[in-house]
């Protein structure tokens, strides 16, 4: 299996960032709107939402969805 430098970097970064307890994509979806609201309100990350923050750092799909949600909520606030 031949990997490019960026791919190996991505692999080791993901492995090193792994925690014994993580939430999956469904749990992230259930909590991501509340996480986004806290971000928009300028509130610090709560203990409960640290698992969401970590998941968003690992899962590129959930991260992409979070950023689109944030953009939508920001747009809604400006109207």
């Amino acid at each position: 299996m031949a990997l490019k430098l960026a791919e190996v970097r991505s692999l080791v970064r993901a492995a090193l960032a792994t925690r014994p307890v993580e939430i999956g994509c469904d749990d992230c979806l259930a909590q991501v709107a509340a996480f986004a609201e806290r971000e928009l309100a300028g509130l610090p990350i709560s203990d409960a939402s640290q698992l969401v923050e970590h998941h968003l750092g690992i899962c590129s799909e959930c991260r992409e969805e979070y950023e689109a949600l944030l953009a939508a909520l920001r747009g809604a606030m400006q109207r």
Binding site: A33, A36, E61, E65
Partner: peptide, 19 residues
């Protein structure tokens, strides 16, 4: 669960569906 507003929760689902 009421952690966020209902509409924002629904929008998160819609964004997942779309992407």
């Amino acid at each position: 669960r009421g952690d966020s507003s209902f509409v924002n929760w629904a929008l998160a689902i819609a964004v997942r569906v779309a992407l």
